[in-house]
Write a protein that binds this DNA or RNA. Structure first.
Length: 223
DNA sequence: TGCTCCTAATGTAGCGTATA
DNA sequence: TATACGCTACATTAGGAGCA
């Protein structure tokens, strides 16, 4: 396994952090963000979890000069970016009961650690607003997409419930988390042996518990 | 001891794109 | 077209604390 140079990693994180600090918007409006992704022909603009994809979209725009985008690929799993180590961009709502975040496929992370000594997560944490009880935001998004998707039509046939959409996100902090073998031991795994929405089994993913992390957060910036 | 309530942990689902 | 995976929330379950 390749040894990691923590000081160098910290430098990289600070560099990325400075770029994001001065270029990222703090208030993300759902409609505006989705329109922005659509206009840029970003393929994920139709996704209901727009916050995660919008953060990725912004990082790809702002960090293309200082990171290699996308990062290395292991099998079908691709890291979002690379600079010394592979990095993944994540967005997490702070106003939820859970302090756990689901990262990439376990095998891909283990391979990344083996090849580069560690893998990193750039985590945007913020306050989310859900006040879409009337589903106006959902209806707007559905119209923009050109009507109901096949998946949604099938869901209605099954009588399954539809998730509440998030309408806005207020960025509060960005943390830089380093995952090594020790972290994998400390944290659990997610979706071990579970199934996809189509019934096929899912590969195991790494689950990070923010409350168990300390030394692993090498840098953070507040907004 | 048994019940209730609260919190944390775990398991499942929703919804989409990419790719073979 | 089927399958795999990315993104995450939320329902359910388990376990601990407090009280009668």
């Amino acid at each position: 396994m390749k040894p990691i140079n923590k000081a160098m990693l910290k430098n990289v994180a600070q560099n990325i952090g400075n770029t994001l600090h001065y270029s990222l918007p703090i208030k993300w409006d759902g409609k505006q963000s989705i329109l922005e992704m659509k206009e840029a022909n970003y393929p994920q603009w139709k996704q209901m979890e727009w916050i995660g994809f919008y953060f990725q979209f912004l990082c790809e725009q702002k960090l293309s000069g200082i990171m290699q985008i996308p990062g290395p690929q292991y099998g079908n799993v691709k890291f979002d970016a690379y600079n010394i180590i592979p990095w993944d961009f994540k967005a997490h709502a702070m106003n939820t009961s859970s302090h756990q975040i689901i990262v990439n496929d376990s095998m891909a992370i283990a391979n990344g650690i083996k090849d580069f000594g560690a893998v990193g997560v750039i985590l945007a944490v913020g306050k989310v607003e859900y006040n879409d009880e009337n589903r106006t935001f959902q209806k707007w998004h559905e119209e923009l997409k050109g009507g109901k998707s096949r998946y949604e039509i099938e869901r209605e046939k099954r009588g399954a419930w539809s998730r509440l959409r998030k309408v806005s996100f207020e960025l509060k902090q960005i943390s830089f988390i380093i995952i090594t073998d020790d972290v994998l031991e400390k944290c659990g795994a997610f979706q071990r042996g579970f199934r996809n929405s189509n019934g096929s089994p899912r590969n195991e993913k790494v689950l990070l518990d923010l409350e168990k992390l300390d030394d692993e957060i090498i840098h953070y910036i507040d907004f």
